[in-house]
Computed example of a mutant assay.
Amino acid sequence: MATPVDPDFRARLAALNEKFAATVPGTLEKIRAALGACVAGGEQPPQDALHQLHEVLHGVAGSAGTFGYAVFGQESRRIEQMVRGVLNTQTGWAAVVPEVEKLLQWATRDAKASQFD
C-alpha cells in the first residue's frame, strides 16, 4: 500500500471536518434568516432575499458532502434548485417554504444523519 506524501493529511482532514461541524449551527441560522426574509416579503419574496437563500443553500450543497454531511448536502442541493427555479420563473415559491422548514428541522436534530426524514 502506498504511503501518503503528507503524513499529517488525516489529522488535517479531521480538523477541517471539526471546523465544518462547528459552522453548521451558524449555517442553519443563516438559512433560517434568509427564509424569514423571504416569507416576510409575502406571496412573492424579494429577489435579494431569494438570492441570499439560494447562496446559503448552494454553499452547503457544495461543501457538506466533503465533510461527511452527504445527505445535508444532497437535500440542500435539491432545495437550492427549487429556489433557482423560483428565481428564474417567479413561480413555485409556496412549495419551497415547507421544504426549507423540513430541512431546518431535520438538520437541527442531526445534520450528519444518513437519512432525510
Rank of each mutant, 00 (worst) to 15 (best):
T89Q: 04
D48F: 00
V86P: 06
E75K: 14
E80R: 11
E18N: 06
N88M: 14
E29D: 15
G36N: 10
E55C: 00
E43K: 00
Q44T: 13
Q52H: 05
P45A: 03
A21L: 02
A49T: 07
L87K: 09
F72D: 09
I79C: 04
G68E: 11
T91N: 08
T27M: 13
A64F: 10
V24K: 07
L28D: 09
G62H: 07
W93M: 02
F20H: 14
K19W: 11
I31D: 02
V83G: 10
Q74T: 15
V86D: 04
A49Q: 04
Q47W: 01
V24T: 12
H58T: 05
L28N: 07
R84C: 01
I79S: 04
L53C: 06
P25Y: 00
G42F: 10
V56K: 05
I79D: 07
A40E: 13
A94Q: 15
T91K: 12
A34Y: 06
D48M: 00
D48S: 12
L53V: 12
V71L: 14
Q90N: 15
P45H: 08
H54M: 06
P25E: 08
K30H: 04
A37S: 12
P25L: 01
A61F: 10
V71T: 14
R78L: 15
L28K: 03
T89F: 13
G85N: 14
V83D: 09
W93S: 02
R77N: 06
A61H: 07
L57K: 02
L87W: 05
A64H: 10
V39K: 08
E29G: 01
L50W: 07
V60A: 10
A61E: 03
G68W: 01
G92E: 13
V56L: 06
G36P: 05
R78Q: 14
G59H: 05
A40K: 10
A49F: 02
I31P: 00
V60F: 03
R32C: 04
A70L: 08
S63A: 15
R84E: 15
G65S: 14
A64K: 05
G73E: 08
L35V: 12
V83P: 11
M82P: 03
W93G: 05
F72N: 07
N88Y: 11
I31S: 01
F20E: 09
Q90H: 15
A21N: 12
G36I: 05
E18Q: 09
